[in-house]
Amino acid sequence: MNLTVNGKPSTVDGAESLNVTELLSALKVAQAEYVTVELNGEVLEREAFDATTVKDGDAVEFLY
């Protein structure tokens, strides 16, 4: 899956889609429990991480 992460191209191997929690784990995001996630310009509530799917071509920003 090809994404733009914090403005840079990134690839997650072996996945066509992941939820936000899985993406944080796959990318080994440090202190993931404290990060705010913006997906395609929309800031996500932490409670929505498990239910929100990240797909090929999406833009993700991790805000600390």
Rank of each mutant, 00 (worst) to 15 (best):
F62L: 13
K28G: 14
N6F: 03
K8T: 08
V5R: 00
A59S: 14
T52A: 06
E38A: 15
G7W: 03
V20A: 02
L18V: 07
A51P: 03
L18T: 04
T4L: 13
N6I: 02
E38K: 15
S17I: 11
M1W: 05
S10I: 15
A30R: 06
Q31I: 11
T11C: 12
E47T: 10
A32T: 13
F49N: 02
S10T: 15
G57R: 04
Q31E: 12
E45V: 09
D58M: 05
V29P: 05
P9C: 09
L27N: 02
E47P: 07
E61K: 14
V5Q: 01
D56K: 05
T53E: 10
A15H: 14
F49R: 00
L44K: 03
T52Q: 06
V29M: 06
L18S: 03
T21A: 08
A30W: 14
G41C: 06
V54T: 02
E61R: 15
E22T: 07
V60G: 00
N2H: 13
V29A: 04
L18K: 04
F49Y: 11
K28A: 10
A15M: 11
V43G: 05
Q31L: 14
E16H: 14
S10C: 15
E42I: 15
E22M: 08
L24T: 01
A30Y: 12
A30K: 09
L39A: 00
L3K: 00
T53S: 09
E42P: 00
N19F: 06
L23Q: 00
V5W: 03
K8W: 10
E38G: 07
D50I: 06
T53R: 11
N6Q: 05
A26T: 09
Y34D: 09
D50R: 05
A26H: 11
A30I: 12
L39T: 00
L44T: 06
E38I: 15
V5T: 02
D50K: 06
T53N: 11
E38M: 15
K55G: 06
Y34Q: 10
K8E: 09
E61G: 07
A26I: 14
N2T: 14
D13Q: 14
S25K: 14
L24R: 00
L18I: 10
D50V: 07
N2D: 06
D56E: 10
P9K: 07
T11A: 08
V29C: 10
E42K: 13
L24M: 10
S17K: 12
L63M: 12
L18D: 00
K28V: 06
E61W: 15
V12R: 01
A26N: 06
A15S: 09
P9D: 06
S25A: 14
E47V: 07
L3H: 04
L63Q: 12
V43W: 08
G7P: 01
F62V: 12
D13P: 14
T21D: 05
G7K: 05
D56F: 04
V12K: 01
V12L: 11
V20R: 00
L18E: 01
S25R: 10
T36G: 06
V54A: 01
A51C: 13
S25Q: 14
K28T: 06
N6W: 00
F49C: 03
E42L: 13
T53A: 09
T53V: 13
V20Q: 00
V43L: 12
E45P: 12
E42T: 12
T53C: 13
L23K: 00
L44G: 02
L27W: 04
L27E: 02
A51E: 12
N40I: 03
L24F: 04
S10N: 09
A32I: 13
V43F: 08
E16T: 15
P9F: 08
A59I: 15
P9I: 07
D56W: 06
V5L: 07
R46W: 07
T36F: 08
S25F: 10
V20Y: 02
M1R: 00
M1N: 01
T53Q: 13
N40T: 01
L44E: 03
L27I: 05
E16P: 11
E22D: 08
N19S: 15
T52C: 05
S17R: 11
Q31R: 08
A48P: 01
L3S: 01
V37F: 06
V35E: 04
T4W: 11
E22C: 08
E16Q: 14
T36A: 07
A32L: 12
E38D: 05
D50M: 06
E47G: 07
V35G: 03
S25C: 12
K55I: 08
L39G: 01
R46S: 06
E45Y: 09
V5P: 03
K28M: 10
T36I: 13
Y64E: 08
V5S: 02
M1F: 13
Y64W: 13
N2W: 11
G14F: 13
F49T: 01
D56N: 10
A15G: 09
T53D: 08
L63K: 14
E22I: 04
T52M: 06
G14T: 10
G41H: 05
N6P: 01
A26Q: 08
E33W: 11
S10K: 13
E45Q: 11
A48S: 11
V54D: 00
N40C: 04
G14S: 09
A26P: 00
V5H: 03
F62M: 06
A26Y: 15
T53I: 15
L18F: 08
A59W: 13
S17F: 13
V35R: 00
G7T: 02
T4K: 08
G57E: 03
M1Q: 02
E16N: 13
A48F: 12
F62Q: 02
V43T: 10
G57I: 01
E45K: 11
V60L: 13
T11H: 15
Y64P: 09
T53K: 11
D58R: 00
L3Q: 02
V54W: 01
D13T: 14
D56V: 04
V54M: 04
S10A: 15
P9V: 07
E45N: 12
L23T: 04
D13K: 14
R46C: 06
N19Q: 05
L23P: 03
L39M: 04
M1A: 03
P9N: 06
E61M: 11
V54F: 04
Q31H: 15
Y34S: 10
L63V: 13
E42D: 09
V37D: 00
A32R: 08
M1C: 06
T36K: 09
S17M: 11
G7E: 01
G7Q: 04
T11I: 14
V37W: 00
T21M: 08
E45T: 08
A48T: 10
A59N: 12
E33H: 10
L63R: 13
L39K: 03
G57Y: 04
V54Y: 01
T36Y: 09
L23C: 04
E47S: 11
E42F: 11
S10P: 01
V12I: 14
L63A: 11
L24D: 03
F49E: 00
Y64D: 07
T4R: 07
G41Q: 03
G41D: 03
N2C: 12
E45A: 12
N19R: 06
D58P: 01
E16M: 14
L18Y: 07
Y64R: 05
E38L: 15
D56M: 05
D13W: 15
K8A: 08
E61V: 14
P9W: 10
L44V: 15
V54P: 01
Y34E: 08
D13V: 15
A32V: 11
V20G: 00
V54S: 03
A26M: 12
S10V: 15
E61F: 12
A51V: 14
N6E: 02
A59M: 12
L24A: 02
E47Q: 08
T36R: 10
A51K: 14
A48L: 12
A26D: 03
V43D: 03
T52I: 12
N19A: 05
L63P: 04
G7R: 05
G57V: 02
T53M: 14
E38V: 15
L27H: 03
V54G: 01
V5M: 05
G57F: 03
V37M: 04
A48Y: 12
V37P: 02
S25Y: 09
G14Y: 12
V60Y: 05
F49A: 02
K55D: 03
G41I: 04
E22P: 00
N40S: 01
F49L: 05
D50G: 11
Y64Q: 08
V60N: 01
L3R: 00
E33Y: 08
N40H: 01
M1L: 12
F49S: 03
G41L: 03
N2A: 10
E61P: 00
V35M: 10
Q31T: 09
D58I: 01
G57M: 04
V43Y: 08
T21G: 06
E22W: 05
R46D: 04
L18W: 07
T53P: 08
M1P: 02
L23Y: 00
E33L: 09
P9G: 05
V37N: 01
G41S: 04
G41F: 04
A32P: 14
V29Q: 04
A48V: 10
D50Q: 08
E33S: 10
L27P: 00
A30M: 11
D56L: 04
V43I: 13
E16W: 14
Y34G: 09
E22V: 05
E38Y: 15
E22N: 08
K55A: 07
V29D: 03
L27G: 00
Y64A: 08
L24I: 10
